[in-house]
Computed example of a mutant assay.
Amino acid sequence: MKSLLLTIVLISFSFLSPMGVTAQESEKVWNGHKCAVVLTYDDALNVHLDNVVPALDAADINGTFYVPCNALPLIERMDEWREIARNGHELGNHTIFHPCDGSLAGREWVSADQDLSTYSFFRLMEEIRVGNAMLKAIDGKEHRTFAYTCGDKSVEDSSFVEAISKWFPAARDVMFRIEHQDEVNPMEVGSFFVMNNTGEELIAQVEKARMEGGLLVFLFHGVGGEHALNVSLEAHNKLVEYLQTNKEYIWVAPLVEVADYF
């Protein structure tokens, strides 16, 4: 009888995790959800305020907007950026002048004044540090994430990733990968680069992340225009609608919140 009782107890515990969580619950590793999605938007465009924010707000979803501090839509519409930050959207650091390495192939469009290959390490660090101060003056916050401009992570032939890790809980990369909690490097979070994708294609990426139980970060520029790297407003909004409908399974939050979680 004792042997039978012991067997029943052991079988019962086999269905529990070490913390007493059922197998089904243990799959919900992202703040009680099966996967996480972060919507990020680069370069502080007018369409972000005019097209993106209304769609996100209507779906009760918050995103991350990576803001170069010299962007005219930021300077000319600062009160609106301050308002969206107040409403839960993240204003992320994207430097002041958005420098990119002009020495790389296909980078002929980089101006001499914004050529990262001519920057000193000190100059870039100051630009990022002052960018944080400028964003704090807008949203009153000290805690935010960073996005590498053009995905460049080196200056004067040295990586600056470790140097900025003391200022940010996470930084978004441009290399695509679905992240998993036991593998993610917070300072090089992968992302899906969106350009001319259909709504169905974007949703398919989310479904993949959901099946894998991972984190998917979308990288948008233009949404309905204003940038050569563009996606239609229809495709964007179809994704947003899908995320809203599936909130039970998909955690959608700004990168700063997800980074604090993992």
Rank of each mutant, 00 (worst) to 15 (best):
S103K: 08
R177K: 15
V52Y: 05
F122T: 15
V161E: 12
N46L: 14
P99T: 01
F160R: 11
N196H: 14
H98G: 07
G102V: 05
C100R: 09
S165Q: 02
R210N: 05
S158E: 15
N62M: 07
L16Q: 11
G213W: 05
F193S: 11
I11L: 15
G106C: 00
P18N: 09
D113V: 08
Y66T: 10
W167A: 02
T198M: 07
V194W: 02
V37K: 07
V223T: 08
G140W: 05
V194D: 02
K208M: 14
M134S: 05
N93D: 03
V223C: 09
I250V: 15
L216G: 08
W109C: 10
I8Q: 11
Q244S: 13
M78V: 09
C35I: 08
E127T: 05
V52C: 00
H221V: 05
G92W: 11
A163F: 09
V256E: 09
G213K: 06
T7L: 15
I203D: 04
L16V: 03
L4P: 00
W251T: 08
S12W: 04
H89T: 10
L74D: 01
G190A: 05
E200C: 02
D50V: 07
S17H: 10
A85H: 02
L255E: 12
V67T: 15
G106N: 10
I96L: 12
E183V: 10
P18M: 09
C69P: 04
Y242K: 01
G222S: 04
E162T: 09
I128P: 09
E241C: 12
G224Q: 10
R129G: 08
E25C: 08
V189T: 13
G225Y: 09
L45G: 01
M195W: 13
A105T: 13
V184Y: 06
G225W: 03
L104D: 10
D157I: 01
A170M: 12
V52M: 03
G131V: 01
V21N: 12
I11K: 08
Y66L: 14
D260Q: 14
L5S: 06
M78E: 12
E248V: 12
L216K: 11
L49Y: 05
K208C: 11
V223E: 06
M134I: 15
S111A: 13
I61E: 04
G102Q: 01
I84Y: 06
I75Q: 13
R107K: 15
W167I: 05
L202H: 04
A163D: 14
M175N: 14
A204S: 07
E212V: 00
E162H: 11
V194N: 01
L202E: 03
G214D: 03
L6K: 15
L91G: 10
E226C: 09
T22R: 01
